[in-house]
Every structure is written in C-alpha cells, then in structure tokens.
Amino acid sequence: MSTVLIRALFTSLLAPAGPALPPVVSRSPLVFFHVDSGGCEACSLEVEALRKGDYGLAEAGIVFTDAPRLADMLLVTGTCTRMMAPVVKAAWEAMPQPKGLLAVGACAIDGGPFAENYAVLGGLEKRASVDCAIPGCPPTPDAILQGIVNLLSPTPAPIMEA
C-alpha cells in the first residue's frame, strides 16, 4: 500500500473532531514562535489551548516551533516589560525574512491593564508594525485562530460560532 493511502486511512480514522478549516496559506505550513512578554498569563494559556486542543491547527496550516530561526510569525502575548523587550527584539531579529508580527490580547496590543510604567514598556502597537492584532482580555482560542485565518486568507473565512 502506498504511503498516501496509509496516510489517508489514518487521517480518516484519527482526524480531530473540531471544525475543519480550509488551508489558508500557500507556503504551508506557517510556523509560529510564541513569546510571553509578561502579563497575567491568561493569553498564554489560551494560545496553549489553541495549540494543544481540537482546533484543527494542522488543517489551517499552522504549526508552532521552539526556535525563532525557523519561524515565519512572531506571536506575542502579554505586555512588553522592559526586561523582555530585548528578548522579543532578539527573537524577531533571529527570524528569517519575510516575517510577521502577531499581537494577541489587549496587553500585547496597547498594554491593556498594564500600561507603561517603570518596569513596563506597554503594547507593541506604538513600537512596531503589527501585522495582526487580536483584541480581548483574554481572547478565546477561536478568536485567535479566526484572527490568524483572516489575516492569511485572500478572502475572509466565514465567522465561526464561538
């Protein structure tokens, strides 16, 4: 039996039960690197839920990596603390071109509840060009996925029920 057949068989048997999403990118898969730059970790938890749960990430052509050198998109959650700013910058600089920046949650966009102070720089909005901003405190995994899909699809995908 050819590998294609075996894979098809396995897919039909083991495919996750979540809503199947159309493949949205030509350059598949799209690789994300996630940085939590400080915050209450709620957005991080939701990104984790998206990564590990039944959200059909693979069908949408999205994978996560542990190395920024392999990533196409930098996904930032949490407000940017002064200590994390050089780390986020280093991760961004390590990523190959072309690359994109994704701000997930109110903190990452404009600081949310954690605006600028002695230890915090605030959100990314003012400091970098954000390719996709997903609002919410915290946004649901569905909203994060929807944001990513809408960013990448030529035509916006139909809105899923939350």
């Binding site: 939590d36 991080s44 996560f64 949490g78």
Partner: peptide
C-alpha cells in the same frame, strides 16, 4: 528561557 517557545511565563 525566558523565551522558550512554550506557554509558561518568562
């Protein structure tokens, strides 16, 4: 760390 690619805080 602090950016390990995982979901824990920095």
């Amino acid at each position: 760390g602090p950016a390990s690619g995982g979901s824990e805080g920095p």
